[in-house]
Design a protein around this nucleic acid. Structure first.
Length: 507
DNA sequence: CGGCTCTGTAGTACTACAGAGCCGGTGCGGTACT
């Protein structure tokens, strides 16, 4: 069978993992596909293989520059040369070269923003676009609705490129998000392959603490007793730095921090060191982890309350991809809700701010990006909050690129205010779901699966704090696994250090 | 919510401290061209 042979030839696997074959076959037959596969089950093969077997170009919309870089490097290392990424990391000359030789490529990774360029689109229009893929498709719904609205402008592009078969693929999407993805991409008669988000080898532990200090002590305690590698998520950049410093002062030398405020080189370095085992623990914000291809992460700790359950599941899903027992710990303190609430509220502007901005824009004319920025920053509106509004105004044809039509403030105000009220309700509901989940005495696994529209499942032995697990159970299992796997793990770690390469198969 | 910075004022006449107010997270591209 051709697919099998190609799988072996290009990726070195003799068997498909669950879901891969079905997804590939549907896509190759020309259907649109919506796929949800758990993290670490080889999602990228689902489009890389069809792309390599096709006679045209596959466009892959990818959320991060580093992710594109990784994937291109990985494919090139496997001998696939017809692969490129088109983004701001490459020079203007390189970009030009890629665009003038598009027909030489099988796979082109792009950001949604890059697809807004007329130049890029006109070049893509001239060639045969075989498949249109949106990787990490939940971004359409999450980031697309706030600070990256270009994620919600993909359907017209797909149409412009002649409606190539479309694959939207993600690891975590509720029914509501999946519906949104379908609408946004205007998928037609699509095949859906939805697999459970349940990860049985990750035990869910939630622990309430009474203060910031005890939380920090608790964190140290876990880091001391549970064997890593591990990730600790925080809600602020400052916290990642001070916690890393604290842990280092307590004798954990191979700890570092990671957040979006760091320069790209440092971010790549830290990630690389974590991959290679030179770092054992990363204190980070939500900037860390997407596309992280490391199979032996043993625990993920949340030091602050996550803002929604999808993000939470994404983040804990980075643990245990090797199938070994892993642990997700959420340290929670009543004060955290205040921080979380304020963070989501800052994404939504107040009515007086809305009036101010609409008034400033209502005369119409050409506004430079700098001018727009100065309008909203002068009254303390975040970029994210502004982009939500701008997107709506764009949808209603009040603005195209930087050119604004004049409009009546009062009329537009009532529409936009209504829209913002609805948006606020949505984000508040998402946070309230997190809170209810944290507080419930019911099985955490069952409840989070319910949130994702999945029925109750057979519980693993180490299920969750409601079902009665303790971290000492986890330690015991770790020790037993070490006894069995000890020599293998050491040997793998040695190899990793020598080849600076992760052993294992991620996505 | 909590932590930081800014501002104002008392008294030490330039430092000290209180209270108000603000901010916290996720990322692309950037720019003209073709």
């Amino acid at each position: 069978m051709e697919l099998h042979e190609s799988l072996k030839k290009w990726f070195g696997y003799s068997e498909f993992r669950p879901g891969q074959r079905e997804i590939i076959e549907s896509l190759v037959s020309g259907q649109d596909v919506l796929a949800m596969l758990p993290t670490g089950t080889g999602k990228s093969i689902c489009y890389q293989l069809p792309a390599l077997l096709s006679d045209g170009l596959t466009i892959v919309v990818s959320p991060l520059l580093s992710l594109m870089l990784d994937q291109v490097q990985e494919l090139k290392s496997k001998g696939m040369k017809q692969v490129a990424a088109l983004n701001s990391m490459i020079s203007k000359e390189e970009r030009q070269s890629v665009l003038t030789h598009l027909s030489h490529y099988r796979l082109l990774y792009v950001s949604p923003e890059m697809l807004q360029s007329d130049w890029v689109l006109s070049k893509l229009k001239q060639i045969n676009v075989r498949y249109f893929v949106v990787d990490e498709a939940h971004c359409i719904s999450h980031w697309g609705k706030s600070f990256r609205t270009d994620y919600r402008k993909l359907a017209p592009i797909k149409r412009y490129l002649g409606h190539p078969p479309c694959l939207a693929i993600t690891a975590t999407a509720t029914e509501e998000v999946r519906k949104d993805i379908k609408e946004q991409l205007q998928l037609q008669d699509e095949s859906s392959y939805i697999y459970s988000v349940d990860r049985k080898n990750i035990a869910l532990h939630i622990q309430e603490t009474d203060s910031k200090e005890t939380k920090l002590e608790q964190l140290l305690d876990y880091v001391n007793t549970v064997k890593g590698p591990g990730i600790v998520y925080f809600q602020s950049r400052k916290w990642t730095e001070s916690a890393a410093e604290y842990l280092r002062s307590q004798g954990h030398t191979n700890v570092s921090f990671y957040h979006g405020g760091m320069v790209q080189e440092d971010r790549l370095l830290i990630q690389q060191q974590f991959m290679n085992g030179q770092l054992n623990l990363i204190c980070c914000t939500s900037a860390f982890g997407m596309g992280l291809n490391k199979s032996d992460i043993r625990y993920v700790i949340h030091f602050h309350l996550p803002l929604d359950l999808e993000s939470y599941l994404q983040e804990i899903g980075r643990a245990g991809r090797d199938g070994n027992q892993s642990l997700a710990i959420l340290l929670y303190n009543k004060d955290d809700l205040g921080l979380a609430t304020s963070m989501i509220q800052r994404d939504v502007m107040r009515s007086d701010q809305l009036v101010h901005i609409l008034t400033a824009l209502s005369e119409g004319g050409a506004f430079s990006p700098e001018k727009e920025v100065s309008i909203y920053t002068s009254i303390g509106v975040s970029e994210s909050a502004f982009s939500i509004l701008r997107y709506q105004l764009e949808q209603q044809q009040f603005v195209h690129r930087g050119n604004w039509k004049s409009f009546d403030v009062e009329t537009v105000y009532s529409q936009m205010d209504h829209m913002l009220v609805e948006y606020r309700k949505v984000v508040e509901r998402r946070l309230s779901n997190v809170y209810q989940w944290v507080e419930t005495s019911q099985c955490k696994r069952e409840r989070i699966l319910h949130y994702f529209g999945e029925p109750a499942v057979e519980k693993p032995k180490l299920c969750c704090s409601s079902c009665g697990i303790s971290v000492s159970d986890f330690e015991l299992i770790q020790q037993n696994e070490d006894r069995v796997l000890g020599s293998v793990t050491d040997w793998q770690n040695q190899l990793n250090r020598v080849f600076l390469k992760e052993v294992g198969n991620g996505n």
